[in-house]
Structures are given as structure tokens and as C-alpha cells.
């Protein structure tokens, strides 16, 4: 196991994000990710990226929250990526330990080990991971592991013009976020809330300041580890084994009593 040297993460303050997508471009530029082939308008606000996947490790969501009479008009932006969870579903289900925790306490996919079984895709409660078209392995944000190793901040954080993406030690970021939350709540953002504190999967290294409840942003309010439903699966397996065994045996044996009767019928019938 890698020794964790420092806990790095990002604090993404959506109240400062104006949806310029510089983070998306910086991410693709640094990580040499190809542009989507034959992109077309999605029709969903200004979001033409659509989702996180093997080639899009950052995705700015555009949420038009506007009432019919336009009295309440909000346009929310959220720069989404891998959250580098403390309890990482993807890592927990990986059959090859290809998903590892780095010395920066981030979640990283070791491409040399990944076999492309796609299981981690279902393990992530946020829909972050997908198979890269070029690599053929699972892909997601690395928190710019290579830049971190060189003492730099991730490309997106560096490119963000409004400091909506703050990179640093998770502990410092949490302190900053708590202060910010207090400020925002006093400044008219009544529903401002931190998303990704300890209560979410043991804490997200990449966490958010939201203006409203997580569901508004398409984030699960209470994400779980995939293993939460595994136990039920095993219990039902045990039950099934007994049930099917018993039914089989009984059916097999019960045939004895009726055997001759049926044989007689068959003979006369034929």
C-alpha cells in the first residue's frame, strides 16, 4: 500500500462558477484527451459535453432553474469530476486492484493493471468512470497526479478564472468551505450547503459548495457504497441454493410413487 503523505483535494464553489468551461478545456489539454467525435448540440442549455466519460474528465453542468413566469430565475453551474471519495465504490469493486489510493490520498486508475471489465463503472455512485476509447481501460480524473508529483496544482484549478476550483490540503479546504458556507448563508444564499463532508462516503476529497440541495445538481443526496446491496444478494443466494436444492430433490424423489401408474398408462396408450 502506498503511504499517504498528504491529503490533497479540491473545493469547488459553485457560487463562483460562471460556466466558462475553461476547466474542461484545460483538463483535455493537459491530459491529452481527444475531442468528442462529431459533437452535436445537445439542446440542454449550454451543456454540450453531456456527461463525464472516458474522454471528458470534467463536465460543467448547466441547470436552468427558471419558473414559468420568470419570477424566480436561476442558472446554476457545477463543474463536475471525480470526487476522490474516501470510501470509493469504484476502488472497492475492482477485481484487479487497478484503482489505488495515491500518496496524495487521491483515487487513481493504474492503467497497466486495469483489464477493462467495466465493473467500476457501476461501482461509482456519481457516474464518473467510463472506458476510454483510446486506452481501452477505465478512465477518470486523476486529480492531475502527474502535476501533483511535480508540485503543481491540477490543470482545471489553475485555469479557473474565478477561483471557483480551489486546490489544496483537504483540511484547509474544509476550513475554508465552512467559513464560506457561513458567509453565504448570511449573504442571502439560504440554502448554501457543503456537499462532500464526512457524511458523504466518508468525505469527498473533491467537494462542493452548492446553492441548493444536491438533487438540483443531479447529485445523489445520500450516495452509498455498492456493497450496501451486496449482503442482500448473498443472503438471497444462500436461500436460493437451499430452495432450488430442496425443490430438485423433492421433485426427483416424488416421482417414485407415481412411476408405475404412469408407465401403465403409457403402455396402454401406445
Amino acid at each position: 500500500m502506498t503511504q499517504i503523505e498528504s491529503k490533497k483535494g479540491m473545493f469547488i464553489d459553485t457560487t463562483l462558477c460562471h460556466g466558462c468551461k475553461a476547466c474542461e478545456v484545460a483538463c483535455k489539454s493537459w491530459n491529452e484527451l481527444p475531442a468528442n467525435s462529431a459533437p452535436s448540440l445537445t439542446g440542454n442549455s449550454y451543456d454540450n459535453t453531456g456527461k463525464l466519460d472516458g474522454e471528458n474528465w470534467r463536465h460543467v453542468k448547466f441547470i436552468e432553474d427558471i419558473s414559468d413566469d420568470r419570477k424566480d430565475s436561476r442558472w446554476l453551474f457545477l463543474s463536475d469530476s471525480c470526487k476522490h471519495c474516501q470510501l470509493a465504490g469504484c476502488m472497492s469493486v475492482c477485481p484487479t486492484n487497478a484503482i489505488i489510493r495515491t500518496e496524495f490520498d487521491t483515487v487513481y486508475i493504474d492503467h497497466d493493471t486495469c483489464i477493462g471489465c467495466k465493473y467500476c463503472i457501476t461501482g461509482c455512485p456519481f457516474g464518473v468512470i467510463e472506458i476510454g476509447h483510446l486506452s481501452g481501460t477505465a478512465e477518470k480524473c486523476t486529480l492531475c497526479y502527474d502535476r501533483l508529483q511535480a508540485g503543481q496544482q491540477p490543470a482545471c484549478a489553475q485555469a479557473c478564472p474565478t477561483d471557483s476550483i480551489e486546490f489544496g490540503e483537504v483540511e484547509d479546504l474544509v476550513t475554508m468551505a465552512k467559513k464560506r458556507e457561513q458567509y453565504l448563508q448570511s449573504a442571502g444564499y439560504g440554502k448554501a450547503q457543503i456537499y462532500g463532508d464526512k457524511n458523504i462516503l466518508g468525505g469527498l476529497n473533491v467537494f462542493y459548495m452548492l446553492e441548493d440541495k444536491p438533487e438540483k445538481y443531479g447529485l445523489p443526496s445520500d450516495p452509498q457504497m455498492p456493497q450496501k446491496t451486496m449482503v442482500g444478494g448473498y443472503w438471497s443466494s444462500v436461500f436460493s441454493l437451499f430452495a432450488v436444492g430442496l425443490v430438485s430433490l423433492l421433485s426427483f424423489r416424488s416421482y417414485r410413487e407415481r412411476k408405475f401408474k404412469e408407465e401403465e398408462e403409457t403402455t396402454t396408450g401406445a
Binding site: 474542461e24 478545456v25 475531442a35 468528442n36 459533437p39 454540450n48 459535453t49
Partner: peptide
Amino acid sequence: LPWLAELMPELF
């Protein structure tokens, strides 16, 4: 530039 073109791929 494909990286920018894909962000707003079509006239609307």
C-alpha cells in the same frame, strides 16, 4: 480547435 468546437458544436 476541436476542444473548443465541441463545447458549442452547432449554430443555435
